Simulated assay, not measured.
Amino acid sequence: MDIESLQTYIKVIELKSFTKASKHLNLSQPSVSFHIKNLEEYFQTTLIDRSPKRFQPTQTGEIVYERARQMLGILKKAKTEVEEYHHQLRGTIRIGASYTVGEYILPSLLKAFDEAYPAVDLMVTIRNTEQINRGIQHHELDVGLVEGKVNKKELSSFPFKEDEMVVVVPETHPLRSKKEITFDDLQDHTWVSREEGSGTRAVMEAVLENYNISAGKIITIGSNHGVIQGVKQGLGLSVISRTVVEHSHAESLILTIPFIKSTTRFFSCVLPVDEREISKNVTVFIHLLKGFINQM
């Protein structure tokens, strides 16, 4: 077994094709097949179900896929740490951020870090909270900034900023004409939501469940900007971060509903649970994060 075999296997699984993987990796198809065969011989198992009607990893193939991603992530991290050792604060920090943090909070933090440590390259990945947490687990990211609490034993986290969640309603919505909004008035409306795995969606679903609000329909949009624009266009109601609303200059969409209490959550910094995996660059980044947020 070698690194190239693991890299090849990962790409075959992700592209669900030997042919596509060979083109992406610039390898011949026989070479791709050879790497997969080597892995199957090494692990003494069939890794891929290649029946005529489907192409997917077997159960053992899933295990090897997840571990292969972790191993390659660790090797990449080791290379970065060696570079950091020889060049001090040089090298790269792979930062993952959920959409709310990545779009509205992280840019000013990146500017401050870049001005202080210009020799460090910053690579930013913006995905939903669940995907960022998974990236830290697989060692594909060095540090994550996400919405909500993190309850995974493989990860450690600490809160760094409180965030208020507000109800936003189209300016022409019938609710706005009510002198007093009742529980029944909130039933069976369309709600605009972020995608599954988003911290923002989790809060909205919790609000609907806690107050027994029945949604007539949920429209899913994969970005905060898209949700705000959807509400502006009259698609429906939503629960979203006040940070997003203020940065979008959409304060007029906020509607206070008396029996729904103000909801808050924290943004969290996510790290590997093993402190030995936290590089010097990341340690400096975290120190700057804590000082920077205190000034906001």
Rank of each mutant, 00 (worst) to 15 (best):
A112R: 10
I93G: 11
M296P: 03
G102W: 04
Y42M: 13
T46F: 02
A21H: 05
R276K: 15
V143P: 00
I181C: 15
R242Q: 15
Q295W: 09
R276F: 06
N38R: 15
Y104C: 01
Y9W: 12
A250L: 09
Q7D: 14
Q137N: 11
S22K: 06
G144R: 09
K290N: 07
D185H: 05
T58V: 02
E246S: 02
T220H: 11
T129H: 02
K53P: 00
L75P: 03
K23G: 08
N210E: 06
P258L: 02
K161S: 10
E275D: 13
V227K: 02
V169I: 14
P170M: 08
R176P: 02
H287D: 11
T19D: 04
I213H: 04
V150D: 13
S238Y: 05
E130Q: 14
V166F: 07
S248T: 02
V244K: 00
F183H: 12
Y85L: 14
E140M: 14
A97P: 09
E162F: 09
I63N: 04
I74Q: 10
L145W: 07
S177C: 02
I48G: 00
V150K: 12
V64R: 01
D121K: 07
H138Q: 12
L289I: 09
V203Y: 05
E140T: 02
D114C: 00
L289H: 07
Y85I: 15
V150H: 07
P170G: 12
A112T: 09
L288Q: 04
K16Q: 14
K20L: 14
R201W: 00
K76A: 15
T190F: 08
S22M: 03
E140A: 08
D121A: 07
S262L: 13
K53F: 03
Q229S: 11
S5M: 07
T182M: 06
S252D: 14
L6D: 05
R265W: 05
K16V: 01
E246A: 14
A97H: 05
S33Q: 06
S238L: 06
I63V: 15
G61L: 06
T92E: 12
V146A: 12
R134E: 13
L109V: 15
R94H: 08
G199L: 06
A21V: 10
K16S: 13
P170D: 03
Q137D: 15
V244W: 00
G96R: 04
H249I: 03
D49V: 00
T182V: 04
A206F: 15
I181T: 11
E205Q: 13
L110P: 01
R67V: 10
